[in-house]
Every structure is written in structure tokens, then in C-alpha cells.
């Protein structure tokens, strides 16, 4: 029953009222980003907000419902992608539970972990449902990779690993900035407000920043040689591991 307790803890009336607002934030910012023609989605800022202050289950529900609403109100082709949004919410909440949403470098790591999850979850959907090439612009990269002789699965996976980190790390930073702008007294009404308690940045920020940059560079190099995909993921694991271990030791 521990699981049920943990699920219940995420939801109070503030959560139920925050979720619709968070979904509306997802949609409206998503649309503003399209208007500004920025090369990112930024359509899960609200999901991340809920995940941090209410918890992983509330985050997962927000992500799922966000996709359902997008489908109900704007474009039904959003429906099949709901597992991606679900995992974005869940993993963000899970990271925040572990204290990974308290300062800049930790938020960067959260964004990165979320990106890897989103990439992994969206790959089977785009391969099995859409045959690998979806309506998104990044499909051009997939198409290119296919022409270099790579198989469908690794082409799609490589594309996603390339596209997701930039988007999810920016999203995490924006969510973090919003949380910083809200008063502690206001946040205290949410079930897991403690996850957003700010912490000071330290030298690790630079290390993690450089680490993530290196991983991104390797993932770009992956376009030339598929071996880099696995090297990149290996380095990512090392960077995240070292970051977490060093904070454990302190």
C-alpha cells in the first residue's frame, strides 16, 4: 500500500486546480513558441511545474491529460504520443523528489534525464505507429540517417537523442525560473513544495554544463558514425553519475 499512499500524497485540491492551469500553460507557451518560430517545443513547462511541486504521479497525470486536451481541442494526432508526456511528468517528479530541482546544475541534469527518457519512449511510437518518419521537422534528420544505410530504429533513436536534450533542458530551466519567481508561502500549499526549496550553486555547475555540452557534441557526431550514439550515452551516464555521487558525498 506504500505505492497507493505515495500516489495519494501528490493530490490535494491545489493540485487539482493547478493541473488545468499547467496544461493551459503547456498549450499556450507551445503556441507562442511556434509564433516565434523557435526550434524547440517548450510544451511541457506546466507539466514540469506540477511534477516538481506536487510529485511524479501528478506530473504523469498532467502530461497525459495535456496530450488528451491537445487532441480534444487542437489536433487529434496528439493522442498516440501521450506516453512521452506521461514519462516527462513522471521522471521530472522523480528527479525532483531526489532533490534534483534545487539549483541550476541539478535542473540541467533533470532536463537531460527527462530528454533521454522522452527520446527512448517516443522512438517505438514513431517507429511502429508512423513507420519512423513523422510529421515533425526532425524527420528530415531521420531520413538522412536512413540514406546513410542505418536501420530504422537507430536512425529514429539518434534523431531523438539529438533533438530532445536542447528542448527538455530549456524547458527545465524555464520551469525552474518560474518556481524561483513564486513565493515560498504560495508554494507551501502544494503537496511536495519542499522539492522546490532553492539551493546554492557551486563549482559542479560548470562541470555538469561542460559535461552535457560534450555529450551533445558526441550525439551530433553520431550523425557521421553510429558508434558515437553509444559513446555519447556512456559519457552521459558518467556525467550524471559523477554529479550525483559528488552531491551524495558532501
Amino acid at each position: 500500500m506504500k505505492l497507493l499512499e505515495s500516489i495519494k500524497k501528490d493530490f490535494n485540491t491545489m493540485t487539482w486546480v493547478l493541473i488545468p492551469v499547467a496544461i493551459a500553460i503547456n498549450v499556450v507557451i507551445g503556441q507562442i513558441v511556434v509564433l516565434l518560430k523557435l526550434p524547440v517545443f517548450l510544451d511541457s513547462i506546466g507539466t514540469m511545474l506540477v511534477a516538481v511541486v506536487c510529485g511524479p504521479w501528478a506530473g504523469a497525470l498532467t502530461g497525459t491529460l495535456s496530450n488528451i486536451i491537445w487532441g480534444l481541442a487542437i489536433d487529434p494526432s496528439a493522442f498516440p504520443w501521450f506516453p512521452v508526456a506521461l514519462f516527462i511528468g513522471f521522471v521530472t517528479g522523480w528527479c525532483a523528489q531526489g532533490g534534483l530541482f534545487r539549483n541550476t546544475w541539478k535542473v540541467a541534469i533533470t532536463g537531460f534525464i527527462v530528454a533521454l527518457t522522452a527520446a527512448a519512449v517516443s522512438t517505438p511510437i514513431s517507429v511502429y505507429l508512423y513507420g519512423g518518419i513523422t510529421a515533425s521537422g526532425s524527420s528530415i534528420i531521420t531520413a538522412y540517417l536512413l540514406q546513410t544505410g542505418r536501420d530504422l530504429l537507430t536512425s529514429v533513436l539518434s534523431t531523438n537523442f539529438l533533438v530532445e536534450p536542447v528542448d527538455k533542458i530549456s524547458t527545465a530551466f524555464l520551469a525552474f525560473a518560474i518556481l524561483r519567481g513564486l513565493s515560498a508561502r504560495y508554494l507551501a500549499r502544494f503537496p511536495r513544495a519542499g522539492n522546490a526549496t532553492p539551493e546554492k550553486d557551486d563549482r559542479r555547475a560548470l562541470f555538469i554544463g561542460v559535461g552535457i555540452f560534450v555529450v551533445l557534441a558526441i550525439l551530433v557526431a553520431n550523425l557521421i558514425n553510429p558508434a558515437f550514439l553509444w559513446i555519447g550515452l556512456g559519457v552521459a551516464v558518467v556525467v550524471i553519475g559523477v554529479g550525483l555521487l559528488s552531491s551524495r558525498i558532501r
Partner: peptide, 29 residues
């Protein structure tokens, strides 16, 4: 310039709607 435009557009919208959450929660309770 377009990236810079994001904050002044998104900021007021987000904070405005988040502040309302508490009152709306009281109202439905």
C-alpha cells in the same frame, strides 16, 4: 531577438494564472 521576446510574453501570462490557483482552490472547496 526571438528568444529574448519569449520572457516578456510568457512571464505575465504564467505568473498571473498561477497566482489565481489558490483562490480557485478555495472557491471549489
Amino acid at each position: 531577438r526571438r528568444v529574448r521576446a519569449l520572457v516578456p510574453l510568457v512571464g505575465p501570462l504564467v505568473f498571473g494564472s498561477l497566482v489565481e490557483v489558490e483562490e480557485r482552490a478555495i472557491a471549489i472547496e
